[in-house]
């Protein structure tokens, strides 16, 4: 008798149930579906805008429907979550070395959060919220 190596296959569709970290990863990836969907919504909005004032008003009205509000809320949650995972990843993708030492990772991620907050305020200001 001799070798007969056993291959233990990875289940191609259910592997992410094997460990919480894989579920976290999949949830991060799934947020991109919402972000993609919201991009489609924006494109539709642009199209409506070009179609004239009536079409635009109809689009705005549709946005205020309860289903649409729920959808937009979900997109917001997904976008925030996605952004947070992205910012947290920056410290790995862009380590900064000063002399012998590396800048602490949370400082790099923190700077991204700070920039995000500032930009959000600017956007809200331009949008006339304040």
């Amino acid at each position: 008798m001799s070798r007969n190596p056993l291959i233990r296959e990875v289940p191609p569709t259910s592997w992410y149930f094997r460990h919480p970290r894989y579920l976290r990863y999949m949830s991060r990836e799934i947020t991109s579906i919402f972000i993609g969907a919201y991009c489609v919504l924006l494109v539709v909005g642009l199209q409506r805008l070009s179609a004239g004032p009536a079409a635009w008003e109809g689009f705005l009205a549709a946005l205020k429907s309860p289903a649409s509000v729920v959808f937009q809320f979900l997109c917001l949650v997904a976008a925030v979550y996605h952004a947070a995972t992205w910012f947290n990843a920056t410290q790995k993708a862009m380590p900064i070395q000063i002399g012998e030492d590396f800048v602490p990772g949370n400082l790099i991620s923190g700077a991204h959060y700070a920039a995000w907050a500032v930009l959000s305020v600017v956007v809200l200001f331009v949008a006339g919220v304040f």
């Binding site: 460990h19 970290r21 894989y22 990863y25 990836e29 990843a89 790995k92």
Partner: peptide
């Protein structure tokens, strides 16, 4: 690599 990050963990 799709940056699961499990390797580092």
């Amino acid at each position: 690599c799709t940056f699961v990050g499990a390797c580092s963990e």
